[in-house]
């Protein structure tokens, strides 16, 4: 079976002023469908650039990038947009929900740009489905400001899922969340992954990376580590532990 993502001597160079910044240097990487990967590295390591490129927001400067068999480097702006729309679900650190729209409307947004378009009734149906998948079935008419951070991130995940993508891309998805909510969100990802969704996540938190199946470490635009996670954490168990700890603390005081 062909890899879902295949990078071959992938490089990305930016021109900032007179300086040429080699954000990613000749990286080769394969990711199969069904994987759950954390891309790690310090800031400036090139992980965000990798993420943007894998997310088809950008084309490689040199080298090749195939997404689901499509040579992304040869696509135009509109074709990239369509590819993002159909095959990729984005999750951001800052959630990036439209503040004036309800949760349901936010989730419907990617379907607005679907070509060919689908009927309005089906849109609502699919949005509701996605909302129940992240456990917020009763919050469809809430605005982002009426939801907690964790709930907002769940809405964002539902938005990412609504067009049935092949791949979820999460950029520091737990960066703005407390420990418990972070683990809950990782639980959502693990659940989705178990159902077959490929998840790629950028993070700099080591303990969060341990919920994934594979860790890729970057430094100075190169991959310096690529290992399978051995002692993988399970979100359900960790939440259980956390709850017991809380109880212990409360009993102690």
């Amino acid at each position: 079976m062909a890899a879902l993502i295949k990078l071959e001597n992938f490089s990305k160079t930016y021109n900032s002023g007179e300086m040429e910044v080699h954000a990613v240097r000749s990286v080769s990487l394969e990711i199969q469908a069904g994987e759950f990967i954390a891309i790690m590295g310090a800031s400036g390591s090139g992980k965000s650039t990798m993420m943007n490129s894998v997310g088809c927001l950008d084309r490689p400067t040199s080298g090749k990038f195939w997404l689901d068999g499509v040579d992304v480097g040869s696509l135009g702006r509109d074709q990239l947009a369509d590819l993002r729309n159909k095959k990729i679900g984005f999750i951001f650190q800052g959630f990036n929900l439209l503040a004036r729209s309800t949760a349901l409307e936010n989730i419907e947004l990617p379907m607005l740009y679907l070509r060919p378009s689908i009927p309005a009734r089906e849109q609502v149906e699919r949005a509701n489905q996605a909302l129940s998948m992240v456990g917020l079935a009763d919050r469809g008419d809430h605005r982002p400001s009426q939801l907690s951070g964790g709930q907002q991130q769940r809405v964002a995940i539902a938005r990412a899922l609504v067009n049935h993508p092949k791949l979820l891309l999460a950029d520091e998805p737990t960066g703005n969340l407390d420990t418990q909510t972070s683990i809950e969100i990782m639980g959502v990802f693990q659940d989705l992954n178990r159902k077959g969704m490929t998840v790629i996540m950028v993070t700099h938190e080591l303990d969060i990376a341990r919920y994934c199946k594979r860790n890729v470490v970057m430094r100075d635009g190169r991959i310096v580590g690529d290992t399978a996670v051995t002692n993988r954490l399970d979100a359900v168990e960790e939440l259980q532990k956390l709850r017991l700890e809380h109880q212990a603390v409360q009993l102690a005081t």
């Binding site: 927001l57 509109d78 947009a81 439209l98 607005l112 740009y113």
Partner: peptide, 16 residues
């Protein structure tokens, strides 16, 4: 600008 970025990320074309 940020909203535009989000819309583009989730698949809005320039013409949209």
């Amino acid at each position: 600008t940020r909203e535009i970025g989000v819309r583009m990320a989730i698949g809005a074309r320039g013409q949209d």
